[in-house]
Design a protein around this nucleic acid. Structure first.
Lengths: 184, 184
DNA sequence: CATAATAGGGAATGGACGTTTCCGAATAAA
DNA sequence: TTTATTCGGAAACGTCCATTCCCTATTATG
């Protein structure tokens, strides 16, 4: 079942919500129409479940990227690099389900909007925490405004998903090198 | 006709492409179904025309914001501030047609993808030009990497549209204040 | 071994959508 | 005044989609 959901995630990321038909979904999940409707109330419920699964996976990936850094500064650097990687190539073309949901659904779907907001807030708070960690361990100057910088970095990460979806190449080292000036 | 197109722009921005029916379109444009199909080949052609109109308008707004700056640095500051303004409130909730197209269509629609890419490249080149202007007039240090910084700023602006669509508040002064460190 | 219960598959259905076509009105030409 | 032409409006059509219903296996149970 979870592997079927993973396939659903992929389709929704590639096509978005409205352009994904139940037919696309059943083909990808290798389930018959009836089976999908036995497991989920409707298409919207499938999407919500896919969204949850996607964010859980991404959160784990981001946190494990951060964990590879020795101090706050390096952890943020790794998080940003990880975002560049995921925004590029085939993974980048698939796109981010959070960005896709924000753009396509959040204006007219309160349930999705709430989850998008929660996920963005989580991401931002995670970055803000890393900044404060860096200030505590001495790798980031005290005068850096943690919350403002975190919000700007949130914009950077979400923007990378947009730019990556449009297939503009992103050079991780150079881009993150510039972005790290925000921690000066 | 152009005023009808403006209304089409608004609907597409709010609902996206797939969630906008011909009915939505005719209601917004105050045109009957037949009239729309007399003026445009199909829904896709309406969208393309709306896209052109939107980008023309936005480009004008961005350039006039830049023109209000006395040097390269101030021009970039004004461009970023203008993006924050447009990403907020009711305008932000309506969303950006470029971002929406990139996310919803660009993977499966070559025509839209080309125009999205062109628009992103234009935006990025405009910023890169402003950086070089600033380096020429002395308001931006020579060691700033114009192209890399411009690409990161492109990510920032596109990311602001995503975050704004999700209704997170953006404080222009604080956000842009932090972003200007990229020109240090 | 027989039977009940459950999960999955696939055909049927009702509705909505994009598109086409036809009709009437208004305007210009004769 | 009459004819021709253009333009907008609305009904009609065929397709596709989300959802439901029913049937068939398979498993658990007595």
């Amino acid at each position: 079942m979870d592997t079927a959901l993973d396939r659903a995630v992929r389709v929704f990321r590639e096509r978005g919500y409205h352009a994904t038909s139940i037919g696309d979904l059943t083909a990808a999940m290798r389930l018959a129409t009836g089976s999908v409707y036995k497991a989920f109330r409707d298409k919207h419920a499938v999407f919500l479940a896919a969204f949850e699964r996607y964010t859980a996976l991404r959160q784990e990936q981001t946190r494990s990227a951060a964990a590879r850094g020795a101090n706050g500064r390096e952890q943020i650097r790794n998080v940003l690099l990880s975002y560049v990687e995921h925004s590029q190539g085939i993974e980048g073309r698939r796109g981010c389900l959070v960005v896709g949901s924000a753009v396509e659904l959040s204006a007219h779907d309160a349930m999705v909007a709430a989850r998008v907001n929660a996920q963005l807030a989580t991401n931002e708070n995670f970055i803000a925490g890393l900044i404060r960690d860096g200030q505590a361990d001495g790798s980031i100057p005290r005068h850096v405004a943690a919350d403002d910088t975190a919000r700007l970095m949130l914009c950077i990460t979400q923007g990378m998903r947009v730019v990556g979806k449009a297939r503009l190449p992103l050079d991780g080292e150079r881009l993150v090198g510039v972005a790290m000036k925000l921690l000066a």
